[in-house]
Design a protein around this nucleic acid. Sequence first.
DNA 1: GTAGCTTGTTGAGCGTTGCTCAGCAAGCTG
DNA 2: CAGCTTGCTGAGCAACGCTCAACAAGCTAC
Lengths: 201, 201
Amino acid sequence: MTPSSRPDRPRLRRTAGDRRAQLVQIGLELLPTTPVQELTIDEVARRAGISRSLLFHYFATKRDYYTAVTRAAADLLLEHLLPEPGTSTEQQITGMLDRYVGWVETFPQSHLAFVRGAAGGDPWVSDVYEDTRSRLLAVALTALDLPDDALRRQLVLAWFAFTEDLVGQWVLDPTMARAELVELLRAVLDRLLQVPPVARR
Amino acid sequence: MTPSSRPDRPRLRRTAGDRRAQLVQIGLELLPTTPVQELTIDEVARRAGISRSLLFHYFATKRDYYTAVTRAAADLLLEHLLPEPGTSTEQQITGMLDRYVGWVETFPQSHLAFVRGAAGGDPWVSDVYEDTRSRLLAVALTALDLPDDALRRQLVLAWFAFTEDLVGQWVLDPTMARAELVELLRAVLDRLLQVPPVARR
DNA sequence: GTAGCTTGTTGAGCGTTGCTCAGCAAGCTG
DNA sequence: CAGCTTGCTGAGCAACGCTCAACAAGCTAC
C-alpha cells in the first residue's frame, strides 16, 4: 500500500512477554468482528507486523492461540463483574447484575461473540467458558451466602443462562427500563431459590 | 485397504434428490461426534463414496452443506416435540417438556453438538438456531394460549435457555427424578409468567 | 571493542482443505 | 445406435495451519 512507509527499519525485538501480550490484545480486538475459530494466523501476524512463524513460536497451535484470547476475554469480564467485598449481600448481587447488563450494553458485539464463540464447537474453548461460569458461580454463591449443594449450583447456573439470554434479547429490543430488567432478573433468582423444596419432598 | 472389495463396479447413478438426502443423512450421523464447522468435505465424500466435486454440485459451499445438515437436525427435534393438537393446554406443555428431556437423555451428544454448534460462531448456523427457537416459541405460546407481546416472548425464550441449560446439566448429574425435573421446569415457567407486572407498574 | 551466547525472528516449503472447471459417461429417448 | 441430459470425476489452484533450519538483535564477558 504505502511502499515507503517503513522501507527498512532495523527490525526491533520485543521481549517474549510483550509479544505475547500484543498478540492476545490483537485477538481481543478481532473477537467482536470474527468468530473465534475463524481468526486466521495470517491476519493476526499481519496486524502485528510479524511473520506467521513467530506466532507459532508463542502459541504452539492455532487452538492454543485463540484459547488464550478467549481466556483473556473471560478474565476481563470476570474482573469487571467482581463485587466490592465490603458491601451487603443485596448490593453485591444487584451490583454484579447491573455491571453485567452494562457490559453487554457497551460491547454487545463483543459479548455475543464471546458467549457464542465460547459455547460453540471447539471443546477447548468450551472449557474456558465452563470454567468462567464456574468461577462466577462461586462468587455468586458467596455473595448470596448460600451453601453450594449440587441442586442449587445447577439452578443458579441455569439462571445464568436465563440471564445471558434475556439480557441479550433486551439489548436488541429494550422492552423495559434497565433498572427494571435488573430487578426482574433479581426477582427471578429469588423465586427460583425458593423452589428447590420440589426436589426434596 | 481391501483392494478387491469393489474392483470396478459399474458406477451407479442416483437421482439428485436421493444424493442430497444421503449427504444430509451422513452429516446427521457425523454431527454428534464432530463440531459442525469441522465436518470436512473429504470425510463426507469418502463416506458417501463419491468425489469431493460432487458434493459441491449439490451444495455450492461448505457452509451451505452444514447449514442444511443443521436445519435437518433442527427439523427432527421440532417434529419430535410438537404436541398432539387435541389435548389440553397442560398436557401439551408437559408433554413437550417431557419429550424434550427424553430427547436430550437419548441423544446427549447429539443435542449438545446441536445446541453448541448451532449457537456457535457461524452466523448462518445461528440463524437456523434462532429460527428453530422462534418456531418453538410460536408453538409454546399457542399451547399456553397466551398473547405474544414482546415482553412475554423474551421471557419464554429466556426460559428456553434456562431449560436447555438445566436439562443439559441434569443429564450429566441427575439431582432429581425425571418427573420432578419436568415439574420444576413447568413451575418456573408458571411463576415467570406471573412476574411481568414488574414491567408495567 | 569484539567474541560469544541467548533468543526473538524469518523465509521457504509441505500437507490439507475448500472450491473450480473442463470433460467423461450412465441411462434415458427416438 | 444416435443424441441428449445430467450425475459424476480428476486435475489443479489458492488459502491456511504448521515445521524447520538458519539468521540476527541485543546482551554479557573479557
